[in-house]
Design a binder for these strands. Sequence first.
DNA 1: AATTATATGTAACAGTTGTTACGCTTATAA
DNA 2: TTATAAGCGTAACAACTGTTACATATAATT
Lengths: 210, 210
Amino acid sequence: MLEELQQNYGYLFEDELIQEINNVGTYKDIPEGFKLIEIGDYIKSMPLLVSGAIKILREDEDGDELILYFIEQGDTCAMTLSCCLGNSKSEIRAVAETDTKLIMVPIVKMEEWLGKYKSWQKFVLQSYHNRMSELLEAIDTIAFLKMDQRLFKYLKDKAMVNHNEVIHVTHQEIARDLHTSRVVISRLLKTLEIDGKIKLHRNNITVIDL
Amino acid sequence: MLEELQQNYGYLFEDELIQEINNVGTYKDIPEGFKLIEIGDYIKSMPLLVSGAIKILREDEDGDELILYFIEQGDTCAMTLSCCLGNSKSEIRAVAETDTKLIMVPIVKMEEWLGKYKSWQKFVLQSYHNRMSELLEAIDTIAFLKMDQRLFKYLKDKAMVNHNEVIHVTHQEIARDLHTSRVVISRLLKTLEIDGKIKLHRNNITVIDL
DNA sequence: AATTATATGTAACAGTTGTTACGCTTATAA
DNA sequence: TTATAAGCGTAACAACTGTTACATATAATT
């Protein structure tokens, strides 16, 4: 674990902090699709992403979903931070988008380190800043883009975090992430294919115009 | 200024910190409609709200606006925090919704206090948490509600922060805040009036069903 | 091989939102 | 007072999105 820490967080944290994380952190291998956090959960520890990607989702009272953004290596979940430090329930759902490796750090340590390590403090504040920016981007996407543009952005983002222009996904799954219906997605996908931006196959989509 | 500080932030900060804020902070009286922050601005100081309310807006490349939320007394702008500590440009616009009193604190002090006062650290983290929640609520509103529901929520929120069920606003201004057209707003307002939820007048709207 | 479940394509129609156009009213300025 | 601008109401239509229905294709199961 120490190796992964140094590789992914060495440039951020001083050696002493890396050592501490190594001592109290738990290394976890998460399979694709695994639900890491559910809405309403009390968070007891905080994830530091080593590799892979995590999808962050919002849900309304009727159970309708909406993707907010993806988190990648070197990131942490600022929502989790927020919940931990505020001792409140999670307002989002987190699902492993790919096979993911991460290090879990217990809350108590997080708070302790805030006073102890300047680099940790900076990391926490920077994480908040990044997540804030990503929430704003999510708002831009929902508020200012039409569904066809949102769809194409979604496909490109998904290809990006998967490091693969071939996306394994069904129209129904996309519809759930974008909070619309399967028929709408099928229709728009077909148009994107005609425009030469993607290629459609059963259970997967190739993004051409990346 | 000391009096306002103790009244609004006394329960949050220790006396020593209140004193420090009193020494380095600048008291400001802001008139309704004054633009406090523009997108792209570098922020040099952070506002602590004493009274009044501030409207936070997002804008896309075409200049289309969208309201994110209102900030009220006892709050600060976490976006500003974020920008200050990250030394980056503002991603939002801030406009005084009502006449507003606030205390401006220079950046250098903000950072210094993070290490020095636990209560300040807690305040900063709590502010991030609050703003994150408000961004999520904004997303819920845009993504899950129809325009008529968004409009009614907007009117109620506006009545709330103005402490007045009579809102001084034109249909055109509402349309800008909600990123739609004047005609759409007029249409939906008329329906709300027929439903007995509001009363329409020239330049103002009375919210009945608060 | 036949059956079943899942995934996709497409048409037809409904509902919501956006646009254009124009008339009327109220406030402000000349 | 008259002219002009700003605010609002409404109709007609267009564009986009959502819904229902059904056909076809592919994969998984028996």
